[in-house]
Design a binder for these strands. Structure first.
Lengths: 316, 316
DNA sequence: CGCGTTTACGCCTCACGTAAACATC
DNA sequence: GATGTTTACGTGAGGCGTAAACGCG
């Protein structure tokens, strides 16, 4: 029995498949499989039931899982015991939304690099829905997404909120909400995004009906479509500020306001590695828990005809 | 960092030298040294101070030692968790006195073989004094010896007692104690034996003076010398019974009685492996805690001229 | 046929022991 | 010189990845 075997077993037991666990461990599926087989031989008991389609934990495996976790934690403590540094190291896969990727994420990465140079933070941008799945499957260690997770096995730590503002191109006639929704398509992020539920709630509570939707998977593209007058929609308030200031779009503050979207850090239940606590501390310093999310890397969505002007720091 | 490295470190840190630790781990000193060096590299801290003659634990090593022990214990628990058997396995070096080796030890070995077939019990016969040293140095896992250990770092569990009886050859004149001690040498085990202190206490408390000593390192030899009339001395009561019955020696019950000798199982402090608990359980069933030690393998010290007659089961 | 896991096999690293060197008493 | 630890080095087992096979939907 080795620590490597126990680690392999733990992740294989908690991830959706051996493939995910192997990827996380920087290991081929084959080697992972063998490590587990060796552990089973060493312990003299089957930990996985391979009779069905997917390998499932046996009762013995179930019993071993938390003990293995405890042992690994203890080993981790030991590693940190003698280090003068914070002991936070290794790789952490962090799922974030696109909004986060362009707002507080750079600051978080910079802070992490400064505080924990040994920590390799790997942000992956995806929609809230996908993040949930990938978190649960074990692809991510944690994720920052809107709302609270409905899934068991995922813990949520509230982390801040974002506000949104309805906007339209300046040259469009200023219609009332329902009229506008009837005339132009509603430009939004796809269904899986964190804003989806917030939007549906808003539509439902005011009784509006959407006639046409135009979805695009990045805020940059959405902003471009809105500035072009292709349709109407909303943008993250702070993110839209420069675009609004330059007149690229017009805020429709006469329309009913959208509610704030609360974000939360989601962590896999039972995963209490020190590195996650450290990440929470970093996030607490990066994202103000009470205030709306601050926008650090000011985006520069292109007003028509300004292409090529990069003085605002826009990075496509 | 691996479990093997931690195990190597723990034993190197608690044994008297790397050589002893290596021997215990079935490892060459070279490999042990490398394991520890690798652990130090992995942890990024020196665990041993090699500046002096002997490697000594650094403060960091001191701090790590109990944590490593805890981790190894936990790992041991994990191994036992899924086993249907008692989980008691491995090798256990047990120091015993000669008396034990000829009395309850065979029964203990048989019981151990029955209860814990995976356990390799390695009894080593030595004197009480040497046992203490070898226990402390790490050569033994535990030892059964007379009295209570004066050494820190060794725990004692009381385990039974043995009584002794003064004897002399039948053909010798029946003198009073001091007269006998003046005329014949006192035949005893060497200084290091468990009976040494008991004898000295007896001599001191009665004010007797020994004029000549004749030491020999086995009870069998002592009994032979006594039967031959070379000198006077004492024998373990039960062990001497057959010899007394055959008239090989004569009990001198008119002499002041020797006090009982209490035996104790000694274990290295901090070593709380399950295998030691199991051994204590075995010993409790083998040796009656209240009664004097029972003699299982009846010895047959040779009355003069009876050499060759082995009907009494004597094994030289 | 796709997905998930294991087996086969060649490769290479790593951990071992022997023997010598080094260091300390 | 004796004792204790490390270094050098040749050897063998074990863990790795690629690729093929297997088993289940």
């Amino acid at each position: 029995m080795t620590l490597k075997q126990l680690e392999a077993f733990f992740w294989a037991g908690t991830c959706a498949s051996f493939a995910v666990a192997a990827e996380r461990l920087h290991l081929s599926v084959s080697s992972l499989s063998k490590r587990i087989a060796e552990l089973e031989t060493s312990l003299g008991a089957a930990l996985f039931d391979r009779q069905h389609y997917r390998a499932a934990l046996t009762p013995a495996g179930m019993a071993l899982l938390p003990r293995a976790r405890a042992l690994l934690d203890e080993a981790e403590d030991l590693r940190g015991l003698l280090r003068q540094d914070t002991g936070v190291c290794g790789r952490l896969r962090l799922g974030v939304g696109e909004l986060a990727s362009q707002t507080w994420l750079p600051k978080l990465m910079a802070l992490a690099a400064e505080r924990h140079p040994q920590l390799v933070l790997e942000p992956v941008v995806d929609t809230g829905e996908q993040m949930e799945l990938r978190l649960e499957s074990g692809e991510f260690d944690c994720a920052v997404a809107a709302g609270c997770s409905a899934r068991a096995g995922v813990l949520s730590y509230p982390m801040g909120r974002a506000d949104f503002v309805w906007v339209a191109a300046p040259h469009l006639p200023r219609l009332a909400v329902q009229d506008a929704l009837s005339r132009w398509p509603l430009v939004t992020l796809p269904q899986g995004a964190g804003t989806h539920h917030m939007l549906e709630d808003w539509l439902l509570s005011h009784g509006y009906v959407v006639h046409r939707r135009l979805t695009c998977n990045t805020w940059g593209a959405v902003a471009g479509l809105l500035a072009e007058g292709i349709g109407i929609g909303f943008l993250p308030q702070g993110w839209a500020t420069p675009l609004l200031a330059r007149g690229g779009v017009l805020a429709r503050e006469d329309w009913p306001a959208l509610s704030s979207l609360r974000y939360a850090l989601r962590v896999r239940q039972g995963d209490e590695r020190a590195v996650l606590t450290a990440l929470r501390a970093l996030l607490a310093q990066t994202v103000d828990f009470a205030e709306p999310i601050r926008f650090l890397a000011l985006p520069g969505p292109w007003p028509a005809g300004e292409a090529g002007q990069r003085q605002d720091g826009f990075c496509p």
